[in-house]
Nucleic acid binder design. Sequence first.
DNA 1: AGCCTGTCTCGACGCCTGTCAAATCAGAGA
DNA 2: TCTCTGATTTGACAGGCGTCGAGACAGGCT
Lengths: 124, 124
Amino acid sequence: MSKQPAPLVAIDLNAATSCCAPLAQRRVPPEAAGALAAAFKALGDPVRLQLMSMIASAGGGEACVCDLTPAFDLTGPTISHHLRTLREAGLVDAERRGTWVYYRARPGVLRQLASLLAVKPTAS
Amino acid sequence: MSKQPAPLVAIDLNAATSCCAPLAQRRVPPEAAGALAAAFKALGDPVRLQLMSMIASAGGGEACVCDLTPAFDLTGPTISHHLRTLREAGLVDAERRGTWVYYRARPGVLRQLASLLAVKPTAS
DNA sequence: AGCCTGTCTCGACGCCTGTCAAATCAGAGA
DNA sequence: TCTCTGATTTGACAGGCGTCGAGACAGGCT
């Protein structure tokens, strides 16, 4: 997409420590921008955002593809493609248990993105 | 992009009241997913994410295009295009003052996105 | 008026992405 | 082993997106 420098050392958004200070506090470092933007990009589709939400809010912390798919007017392969995108963005994990595949959210990345967008209360 | 229902009534992310409960708490409503995903999509590019950060963290709360452009290895038109994208996503406002154009962040949307991604402390 | 500088718009190019149908893989059960 | 069901992969297509150069517009000069 953006043919910018393209982060040679990918930032690990699942690391324990936070990657960056809030976006409105200090400029996002170029090396981190690639990894962070990739995560936002994965959430930048209505279907994926809903999938992410369904997975993250599911009882037991996980959701079965068999429950996800019928919630949309899309074919199975398309849902599978979106789930793969979320997986490759590090937002979810997949696990096969018998016949079914279950997806589970990775709270760490979500937390990092949330803190990146954090804005001071209302003191401007 | 996604040929989903496509929200006929766009959600106003700049409204005073928050649009939705945290993504991990309750499923994002399909009608809201479009508007929210559009905002995330706008942040889903390394250049735009850095632009957003430079604007939001700038002294005085605003940044001049003349300061933004030289920070990237991109032509003026390209930066202008990205800024327009951020503007159309409702993330920033633009104002011309004399020769220069200044961009300013809209904290409301940022806040909404942050609260959408909010995750419970660490109590699982 | 005429020019210069800063910014945006337009048109074009190539890559990326969302979607589907068809084929393939993975387990479970007979 | 064969078959059936659930999920993913592959291949193809249309449309979207990031980028640039060229041109247009805006405002401040002289």
